[in-house]
């Protein structure tokens, strides 16, 4: 379904969506992030990238799995805690971040479906916004199969045409939202469609960064496991969790018991984000660590994204949002690393 929504009608539409929990990018001090908002008057089309992607809503940093307590009958009682049942809408999703969720879906489905992830995923509607201008200097979505107007994973894609939005509804869920306020929308004219095509074509030209010949990289990486390349590339890495926590596709986690009282026993089992750059991530109880240094941990990050994930799901585990580059405390640039991988030994 394709529609036109004037900027004036935008808030009228949003008011009709009251029953949903609504998230949109919000600026606090100088930082943009997705927050729950009451009335999203208007989405600013030129906001830079949010620090965290909508991953933080679908796969929150802390998820309570279950509660446990001592009980007289069986000695122990375990209660499953599932996320609250409440449909949500995320406005202003960058196309890359929506694509990221389609990649993460692969991990959380399969033989063992993750009930927490899917509960949140299924009750969330993603409304994207075309990146008319790149939200970051380090965007490289085109290199990894995305684009500034990619529709993957979105329910609706909005494109800013100055005084109005071009609305492309892509799923049943999207259609439903539009049908809730039919009178807010107009039919697109031929001119609108032309404007849309122009803007979307132009949005691609503005992506300046790219990884050339990326298709060669997975195979190349396969032969580079035991090379000194990783020692050199990781010299400046400080082993923080920024690249992975900010990455919209990184999904690694930890599970821990948080005890409120030890006698009588009472507590929660929670999932929290974890990441492959922390030394304790793979350390055995014995003290043995299969990834003992930062070279092996940087290698894991790159290989997971550009080799293992490709072998498993035929897609890079990267959407080119550029967060890991922009926010790396020591300027490690994944594009540069991959360029070097491609040219290694040539």
């Amino acid at each position: 379904m394709e529609k036109i929504l004037t900027k004036k009608s935008f808030s009228k539409w949003v008011k009709k969506l009251e029953s949903y929990k609504i998230y949109a990018p919000v600026k606090n001090d100088d930082l943009w992030n997705y927050e729950i908002i009451d009335i999203p008057e208007s989405i600013q089309p030129d906001y830079p990238n949010t620090v965290l992607s909508p991953k933080k809503i679908i796969f929150p940093q802390r998820e309570i799995f279950l509660e446990f307590k001592a009980s007289n009958e069986e000695g122990l009682e375990v209660k499953e805690i599932l996320p609250e049942e409440r449909p949500a809408i995320i406005f202003g999703v960058r196309p890359c971040d929506a694509r990221a969720l389609t990649l993460t879906d692969n991990v959380f489905k399969g033989d063992f479906e993750d009930p927490y992830y899917w509960k949140r995923r299924n009750q969330t509607i993603l409304i994207g916004l075309t990146c008319n201008i790149p939200p970051s200097f380090d965007c490289f979505c085109l290199s990894v199969g995305g684009s500034p107007h990619s529709k993957d994973g979105l329910d609706i894609l909005m494109t800013d045409l100055e005084d109005k939005y071009y609305i492309e509804s892509l799923t049943k869920k999207g259609n439903q939202l539009i049908n809730l306020a039919k009178d807010c929308f107009e039919e697109p004219k031929v001119m609108d469609k032309k404007d849309l095509e122009k803007i979307q074509a132009n949005s691609e030209i503005q992506i300046k960064r790219q990884i050339k010949d990326i298709k060669k990289i997975p195979k190349k990486l396969k032969g580079m496991f035991d090379t000194p390349f990783w020692d050199k590339e990781s010299l400046s890495c400080i082993q923080c969790g920024i690249c992975t926590y900010l990455c919209p596709t990184c999904h690694c986690f930890d599970i821990n018991d948080e005890v409120a009282s030890s006698a009588p026993l009472k507590g929660k089992r929670v999932r929290t984000w974890d990441n492959c750059q922390f030394p304790d991530f793979t350390m055995h109880s014995s003290g043995h660590n299969p990834r003992p240094d930062k070279a092996s941990r940087l290698r894991q990050r790159i290989l997971h994204k550009f080799q293992y994930f490709v072998e498993l799901y035929e897609n890079f585990q990267c959407v080119g949002c550029g967060r890991c580059i922009s926010k790396c405390p020591v300027g490690i640039d994944i594009i540069e690393v991959l360029d070097k991988v491609r040219d290694y030994g040539l």
Partner: peptide, 30 residues
């Protein structure tokens, strides 16, 4: 706002302890 990426700790030249109190496991295991 903290997401516990520990970048502040990781970048600090004074945070050189083998084991940090915030880590949940022992690092200096023999």
């Amino acid at each position: 706002k903290c997401i516990r990426c520990y970048a502040c700790r990781s970048v600090c030249p004074m945070c050189y302890c083998d084991e940090c109190v915030v880590d949940t496991i022992n690092f200096a295991v023999t």
